[in-house]
Structures are given as C-alpha cells and as structure tokens.
Design a protein around this nucleic acid. Structure first.
Lengths: 252, 252
DNA sequence: GATCATAGTCGTCTGCCTGACGATAAACAC
DNA sequence: GTGTTTATCGTCAGGCAGACGACTATGATC
C-alpha cells in the first residue's frame, strides 16, 4: 500500500490545560471565559491549537505561560521552586466534541502554588481561579446560590479526570509539593493534602509520616510563624519523586 | 477572534497499540512487520489512522480486532472473559516522529490472555509475539544472538511506557486477571505477576494475599491439574477493580 | 503580664499487614 | 512405594498506620 495523503482525514489538534492550585483551603482550577462561538460566554479550560512545528509538551508549556506566566518543569524532575509541574493527562477525540470540526485535544495537567490573579489577555474578568467542586457541579448552584453553567465542550470531563489524577498522584509521589511555595511547613503541606482530598488528616501522624520518609522533605533551617501558633520548621522538596510506602488516603 | 479554518495546521491522527500478553513465563508484545516505507521491513507496533467519524477508543478497538480478533472491554469494567482490557496510554506528537508528515499518535494499551498465533492480513510472518525485553533491547541482540533492529518510529518509547503502565497498574488493580483465561488458578495468576514484574514471588504469601482480598477472586468450585502437582482451585475475576491494600512489588 | 487560642512536635500503644519459612496435602512419573 | 511438583495452611517477628495524650512556643486578649 503506497503512501496516499488522501487516505486519512485531517484533524485539528489542540492542548487543553487543567491548571490546579490550592487557595483558601480549596482545590481550584483555572477557568477562562470564552469570547467566541461556540459556547460563547461560558467558562472553559485554557487551551489552544498546537502549532505546526511544536511538540505537544511545548504547546502545553506555551499555553501555560500565556495564561499564567508560569514556566513548566519537566514531569520527571522533582517539584521545584519557581515553576509548575506539567504532565500529559489524556487525549479526547470524540467526533462531536467540537461542533465546528474534528478536533482532538491533548489535555495536560499543571500543578502550581497559589498565584496572584490570573491573566487572560490582560482582562481579569475573563479568567479566574474557581473551586473545582463548583466547576464540576455542572447544572448546579455555586457558593452564591446562582445557577452555574457547565464548562464548555467536554471540559467538565477533562477537569474531572485531571482532578482524579492529582488526587491519586499525591498518594504515591511527592507532587503535593508542587502546590507549595519554594519553602513551606509541614502544616502547609498537610493543608494541601486536605484540600486536594477533601478530608481532615491527623497533624501528628502526618508530621511523622512526611518527616520520616527519606528524600521527601529537606529542612532549610529557617522557621516561620506565618500560619500563627508555634514557629514551624521550613522545608524544601527533597529529591525523591516516589513515596514508598505511599501516603494513605483515608477511605471515603 | 472569529473562527478561521486556516488558523490551525492539519494533522494526521493515528492509534498505536501496545498489546501485551504472557507467554511461556515472559511478558510479550504484539509486533508487526512494516511492509512499506519508512522503516520498511522493521518491526513496529500495530496501529492505523483514526477515521473521520470514529472516536479514539473505537479506532483502537477496531485496530485491536483487526490484528488479533479480540474484542475490547470497557476500561472501567473489571477484567472479564472473552476479551481484552483496553485503555488509553498516552499521546505522542513530536513534529519529526514521522518523516512523511505531521502525525499525532494516541497510543493505547491492551492486555490479553495467551492467544493463538497472531494474524496480520493472514500472513503470519508479518506479525508475532515477541518478549518485550527483546523488543526493548534496541540495537542489542535477541535470544538467538542475532542483532535486533529497534522498533520503527518512536515505538520503542511507546512500548516502554506501556510496559511501565502495566507493571504499575497490576500493583493496585485487579488488571493482572486480564492476562488470564476466564478460569485460572492462584498459581497461574502468580506466574503473571512474576512475568510482568520479572521477579519471583513467594507462593504462600501470594496465595494468602490474593485469596484474602475481598472481591479479587471468586472460586468457581472446579479444580485443575493442568499445571501439574496437586489439584488447584479455579477462580474467576471478582468484581473488585482496585486492590486495597495493593500488591507489593519487591524492590529492585 | 497572665491567660487563652493556635499550631507544631514528640511519644505511646495497638492492630494489621508483610516477609520469611516450616509443614502438610494431593496429584503424576517411575 | 518413592520422588517430584504444585497447592495450601500456619506461625512468628518486624514495620507501619491510626488513635490519641502530652508538651512547646508563638501571638492575641484582657
């Protein structure tokens, strides 16, 4: 069978981003308001077309920088300061997912520390951090009691998959530190786990676990009282990427 | 910004399959010989173009059926008889991965019980089950001492990612049963773990673990001596998909 | 400055799970 | 019968997690 360019249908390929952060004890995702049809005015995940000479991860990193100013880290590197963790999530290609044409979207997952207000072309009203519970309660009601429209396209599914990935991945990796600033306390790390999993963890057992796992945390020597109470030791993320044994997520 | 069809470059989208099975105590993958350029005559993973009206998972299931005759199962359903487990693996889109044109490949992972000889258009010499160690030893030497050419395109990377996914997934899910026939013994299941992980497991502790995990195995009442020795109980896969606590992979 | 509220840190105890490994059972080959 | 192979049950010690008590060091409040 010779090579025949007409033998395959043309596709558009996009990257969509699930950018997660923890704000005020809640897991939040970056949402942008669509300015054009279809789904005009609805909230959606940030994303865009992959360029002709771009790798998928490059396209995702470019979109992330455009939307948040964050630089991406290599997914295999341990979480570090001054950038976000970025990894491929999954690919969505239902023939009807975009009414305009055949679009295959390669979704990526980004985890970032708490950030200043997002930017979307300089217009703050068109981008926001929204609690994932709110975004996923499609057809439900937000915190202010107003009805909430579901996300555009299949973005509710993509966001749901991204949140699930994050929830499971912080169990057996040190990824939770990607939600923290460069230096953080054990309590701040615990609040990340509590926000992502939506549970309360015992501070004493958590402290024992994370400080006892070799390579997870490295003390910097400093302390802080920014959370109130007794001064807490400051840590950086250590070199370990896999936690063995893993953090155990309380059932249900 | 209005909709502009010329604003995005056209891509070809394919699905490639990592089809794994366990044969003669070794983890094997399905490989097909390329009949055309590029990489003519080299071994590659099976795959093909996604059709215009097809979802990605449909395309993967179609390719799987064409190459092996297997029907695919829903990834969320527990492993069951008479078909293969099929799930999306990852997407590969380096601009140079195919010298002919811009191709994005959505790789899928399939796990199947030991099968009769593969078929590739009826020509058995163009499809085979090969031990993954052999396929991944690119530029190395096979069991017969002859030099082995690496797989075509980036298929070595895809296969490596698929094997790693399978290795980690049987830790915390009941997926290992997808490698087994509808009814199997504890010993047969143990040999699956040993082949996939490449380690030896203690038969007594393994037996205690799998029979003690609720929902993992359901006894059928029958016994078999097909492995020799004392008759062993036959089991079916139970309804559980997640193992908690997981199977522990011995270190290194 | 005493008291209180808030966080952080160290210990103890108990139960469960795992790894190591002994012992027994039931088939087949000779 | 004897030996070999595989399956299955039991025992024991060590490690880890959950529950929870106790103490420490700040800032806030009276």
């Amino acid at each position: 069978m010779p090579y025949d360019p007409s033998a395959f249908p043309p596709f558009a390929v996009t990257v969509d981003l699930v950018v997660l952060t923890v704000r005020r004890h809640a897991l939040c995702a970056l949402a942008v308001r669509r300015g054009e049809s279809p789904f005009q005015g609805r909230w959606a995940l940030p994303g865009g077309f992959v360029r002709a000479d771009e790798d998928l991860s490059q396209a995702a990193a470019r979109e992330l920088a455009e939307e948040t100013g964050l630089r991406a880290h290599d997914p295999d590197a341990p979480a570090q300061e001054g950038g976000a963790h970025l990894e491929q999530l999954a690919t969505y290609g239902d023939p009807k997912r975009d009414p305009r044409m055949r679009v295959v979207s390669v979704a990526h997952l980004a985890l970032a520390p708490d950030l200043p207000a997002p930017r979307a072309g300089g217009d703050a009203s068109n981008a926001r951090w929204a609690p994932v519970d709110e975004l996923l309660a499609q057809g439900g009601y937000g915190r202010d009691g107003e009805p909430v429209a579901p996300l555009a396209f299949d973005h509710t599914q993509i966001l749901s998959d991204g949140v699930e990935r994050a929830r499971s991945k912080i169990e057996y990796s040190s990824l939770a530190t990607a939600f923290c600033p460069p230096e953080f306390t054990v309590g701040e790390l615990r609040r990340v786990y509590e926000a992502v999993w939506g549970v309360a963890l015992d501070p004493r057992n958590f402290h024992r676990k994370v400080t006892g796992t070799p390579g997870f945390l490295v003390p910097t020597g400093g302390t802080t009282t920014r959370q109130g109470g007794r001064p807490a030791q400051l840590f950086r993320a250590g070199g370990a990427t896999l936690l063995n044994p893993p953090m155990l997520r309380p059932e249900v």
